[in-house]
Design a protein around this nucleic acid. Sequence first.
DNA 1: ACCTGAACACCGTTCAAGT
DNA 2: ACCTGAACACCGTTCAAGT
Lengths: 184, 184
Amino acid sequence: MPRAMRADARHNRERLLKIADATFRREGVNASLAEIARTCGIAIGTLYRHFPTRDALLQALIHDQVTSLRENAERLADSDTPREALIEWLQEFGRCASAYQGLAESILAAAAAEGSDLNADVESMRAAAAVLLTKAQKATAIRPDVRPAEVFALACGAGTASHYATADPDRLLRLVVEGLAPRE
Amino acid sequence: MPRAMRADARHNRERLLKIADATFRREGVNASLAEIARTCGIAIGTLYRHFPTRDALLQALIHDQVTSLRENAERLADSDTPREALIEWLQEFGRCASAYQGLAESILAAAAAEGSDLNADVESMRAAAAVLLTKAQKATAIRPDVRPAEVFALACGAGTASHYATADPDRLLRLVVEGLAPRE
DNA sequence: ACCTGAACACCGTTCAAGT
DNA sequence: ACCTGAACACCGTTCAAGT
């Protein structure tokens, strides 16, 4: 991330991210780091120098999407259909959180405990969700007793589930917000 | 499980289950099997003789609860408040699936792929949920387009999430069924 | 019939030594 | 400034040898 990086280091970092993305996509966030380094043709120590923890690697991988989520939250905050705005944002979040199997759970863990490299990003997403939730509640489009942590948890849960069930995260998240019970 | 088990074997099996339950409760379903054997004072080969796979161990641990879930599904099938019946059953399922961190995901995985010792139990739970879902749908208490796999997935997702969020699975599951949006 | 534990292949993580 | 790879501690799983 420092602007002035030696060319070989920058190259290794980018290659590492590319291979890690492919590997995580295939095997989930708990894939072997040794294998990633091997596939890169890079020594394991170099991987650790660039990304001291698994979460640091994940953080770098989702960074762009987190930025996009933050921007979209601002854009959606003024929607005049706040429930749909919440759904739309949660769906984008859900797609991000289910990029790799196990990522949604890493996000949940980072939301619940300190000491993860995902903390800052997760907190910014949690805050974005909270803003949209509050707006929707003020418009009585969402039950007033629902707490941000619950929405966040359910969105991550749907992200996890979508990896196994024959259901995309978009549909699961709409069901969560609208409910399985019919509108009366 | 064979009725005629040598006394030492039966004793080891029970001790293994007891320690595994405590360990999984503390560290999740991916806790070290070597550590469990060590805590038991039993050789690792003995653990594998009793439970050839991690899922076989999990299957034995949740067996009683699965039986209870099957019985309760029958009892609840004739309820005249089918939506509440579904919620109640899903809540019991959710408590079972969130006994250990990671168990809900193991259940999802077993529901989606063959070759797990959890397959039979998971299938019986999936079927039980499907019966209650259909009843509720016939009574127009649940949206007709919701599929059993989706309900099952969301319940497992809520089970996973409840491990991290400040929310018990019971409340999350009620939210899922009733929806975050208010009744209109 | 059951238990033991060495053996093998693998991984996460650190760190002294190199360029 | 960065990379290498050996070193250490640990794990999952199997299987020949014991009782």
